[in-house]
Amino acid sequence: MADRKRVTGPEKSVVPLLEPGSLSAFTFDPEKRKDGRNIDRIRPVFMKTGVVRQANGSAYLEAGKLKVACGVYGPRQTARSKISSRGILNCDFKFSPFSGGRRRAYIKDSQEKEYSLVLRQALAPAVRLDLLPKSTVDVFVQVLESDGSAACLAAAITCAALALADAGIEMLDAVAACAVGYFDSTICLDPTDEEETYQSGSLVLSYMPSLNEVTHVIQSGEIGTTTTIKALELCVDACAQIQSVMQQTLAATIKEKINGA
C-alpha cells in the first residue's frame, strides 16, 4: 500500500545479512556484560529539560546509546465532543525511522500503539487530571535511537514524566521507569538491544518513589513467581536512583531560570 503523502522508495527492501564469521562473536554472559556493568546496574543516564522551545515542557534523555525526546503541550482546550470534568492525558509514542536496526515506517505499527497505551497507563496515576477539567495534556515521545525495546519504553516513560514536570503540570510525583531482562533465572537490569536477543522475558516497571507506589508494570515471557518478585524489588531500587537524577535536572533548570531572569 503506497503512502501517497510521502516520498516512497522501492516496494520492498531488506536489511543485509552479515558475512559469516564477521560478527564479533557475542555470547551473553551476565557476569561480563559488554559495557562492563554488573547485572544490577542501569546505564548512566543523562537528562535535560527545555530542549523543545515551542513546547510547554520538554525533556531529552540519553542512556548509553538510547536517545529519547519528549514534548508536552498543555493543558489545552479539549475538543467539544469530549469535554469532561477530568482532564484527558493523550500520549503518543513514535520511533524515528532511523532509530533501530531496520527502517521504521512513518505509519504507526502495533508496537508503537501499544507503547502509547502503556505510556498513558504509566503516567495517568501520577498526573492530577482532576485539576484540569475540560483540558487535554498532549505528550509526544520521539525515539531518536533505540537500544533495547523494553529499556526504550522505560526511558520514554521517564522522559515524559520529566517533560510534564518541565511543563508545570501538577503531579503527585515524578514517575521513574526501569526495565529488566530475564535470562532463565538471572535478572539483568536495563538490557541493551544485543542482550535482548537472548532474553526469555522482560519487565518494565513505573514507580513513584515519594509515594512508594507502582503506577504500572508489564511483563512478558514465562517467568517463575519468585524471580518476578525479585525483579520487582530490583526495579523499585533502580527507579529511586533514576528519580534522583530527574530531581537534580529539574533543580538545575529552575536555578538557571532564576539566575537568567
Binding site: 514534548g71 525511522p97 520521539q142
Partner: peptide
C-alpha cells in the same frame, strides 16, 4: 540504486 528523502514535522516540534 535509490535515495528516498522524507521530511517530517512531528507534533512534538510545534503546537
Amino acid at each position: 540504486g535509490f535515495i528516498v528523502p522524507n521530511f517530517d514535522l512531528p507534533p512534538l516540534c510545534s503546537p
